[in-house]
Amino acid sequence: MNIILVTSISLGTIALIAGLVLFVASKKFAVLENPLIDEVEEMLPGANCGGCGLAGCRAFAEAIVNNKDTSLNCPAADKDTMNDIAEKLGLQISGGARMVARVNCQGGHNSIREGDYLGIKTCAAAVVSNNVTLVCPHGCMGYGDCQRACPFDAIRIINDIAVIDENKCVGCRVCVKTCPRSLIEMTPYDTRVYVACNSPDKGPQVKKYCSVGCIGCKLCDKACEFDAIAYKPFLAAVKPDNCTECLECVRKCPAKTILFRGDDAMAVKPAASDRAETVNV
C-alpha cells in the first residue's frame, strides 16, 4: 500500500512539474504567426514542387500572406483555388493562361541510336559520361529523368520518349529544370499545335538520324496565313498568340513534325507493360 502511495505521489509530482514547465515554455517562447499562413498552406496542393520559385508550399503561403505579393502564382493549383486564396486575403491575383510542359521531341523509335548504353540508366548519367547512344544531339534520350522528377506523375516514357499527360501537368517546371537537354518547354495549354522537335541542325543532317525531325523546309511558314510560325535557323516554332489552330501547317509538314494534340489525344494511357518497364529504370 505504502509503495503504491509513494510512487503515485512522486510520479504525480514529477508529471505536474513537467507539465508546468511545458506550459510556461509554450507561452513564453511561442512564435506569433499569422494563422492565415496555415490556412493558405492547407488550400495549396502541397506537392512542394517549387514551381512558384519558392522552397515549397509553406514558403509560398508565407510569402503571399506576409508580403501580399500578387505576382506570385501557384502553377499547381487550379484557377478556383487561387481565386479562393485571393478572396481570403483580399487580393487580386492576376494569374495567366494555363501553361503545360511539352516535350519538343518525338524521336523515340523514329530516331537512330548507335551502340548499347550500359550503365546508370539516367539521362544525366549518359550525358555526363558522353555515353549518349541517340545520334540526334538534341533529342530525348528516354531514360526518364523527367518521369522520376515529376511530382504529379504526369510523365511516362513510352517507346523511349517522354510523353506528358497534359491533363495531369500543372506546369510546375520541375521537368523543364531536370531535362539535361533542355527540350521540355512551357507552352499555353490552349495552344494545341506545336513543333515536336528541338534540332536546329540542317535538313540533310536531321534526315540522317531522325525521320520525324524538323528539316527546316519552311513549308509550314509558307502555309500559315496568320504569321504563327517563328522560324529559327532550320527549326520552326509555333507562336501561340497568332495560332488559330487551322492545322494547315500540320497538314503541310513533310516530316510530320508539327503535332496537334486534340482533346482526346491528351490523355495518355500507357500500356501496362510499358508502365512496368519505365517505372523500374
Partner: peptide
C-alpha cells in the same frame, strides 16, 4: 558499383 560514373555525376 558504378562508382566512377556516380562520382562523375556528383561533380556537377
Amino acid at each position: 558499383r558504378q562508382l566512377v560514373h556516380w562520382i562523375r555525376l556528383g561533380k556537377p
